[in-house]
Amino acid sequence: MVETQTKPKRLLLARFLRNKTAVVGLIIIVTLIVIALIGPWLSPFAYNDVDRQAYLKPPSWQHPMGTTQSGRDMWALTLHGLRKSLVIGLVVAILSTSIAAIVGAFAAYYGGWFERFSLWIIDLLLVIPSFLLIALVASNSAGSASGGASSWWLLVLLLTLFGWMLSARVVRSLTLSVKQNEYITAARYMGLSGPKIIVRHILPNIASLLIIDATLNVSGAILAETSLAYFGFGVQPPDTSLGTLLGDGARQLSSFPWLFAGPATIIVLLILSVNAVGDGLRDAFDPGSKASGKG
């Protein structure tokens, strides 16, 4: 109708800033990331230092969040766990959203056998109880001596492998609707090849969904790692993540609450903030539609 003079990006920012929960969430996330990055300088202890004077001690001046059974400083452990959880969340989110974008867009654009095959693989991966399989592989690597450093990478790969399917389905259905637009037909009749159309016209037009999806995948991955860790299938000692700390702490919750309270607060804050930012992004990108990709 009448041209809108407001710049699109400005409008996005204005809409996002209107959502106070999301803004607070963003501030918390940034703070947490900063804390995680400068973590080693925030504590006199390294996360794997053992204080032989303090086994399972409640919070004190020296150990503000107490110590564990093996005399490690909870504050240092929490900082380290936060960093690991953030890395896992981000890497899994970026990888799985990328896979979802590529598979979903190509399947929808080309259709035919490739689409049927992709959908079948998606179905198969959904039918396999991912939790069990990740646990299977993770428990094996936990048992093996090589654990430690390599195990969290394995975990990232497994979480990615079983984390992209629902997003791919959403990408596919969105691509199908973007494909209805005449600018896609026009591009085809201009002589653009399929992959170019996908990269230049389809993916940019579903970018908002991809950003939202990646955001929610961050919290999804952190939650998944936490759940696995509760059963001992997560990041393996001596390395640690928030999930691992939380899993250990939950078992001794009534007797030694300090092992639980710190990691639990941080992880709930983190996930809540990420989810809030995801909601804020969705409202900003797509104020008309209230339909969400994931509940």
């Binding site: 637009n181 005449e182 037909t185 026009a186 591009a187 009749y189 002589g191 016209h201 940019p204 037009n205």
Partner: peptide, 27 residues
């Protein structure tokens, strides 16, 4: 391909909303 082109009914739907007029015509 070069010799035949199409103009669609709905101009809004036939222009990629993420591209500037220059990019659209230059494509």
């Amino acid at each position: 391909r070069r010799k035949l082109q199409i103009v669609f009914q709905d101009p809004m739907s036939s222009l990629d909303p993420r591209m500037s007029v220059f990019d659209l015509v230059a494509e």
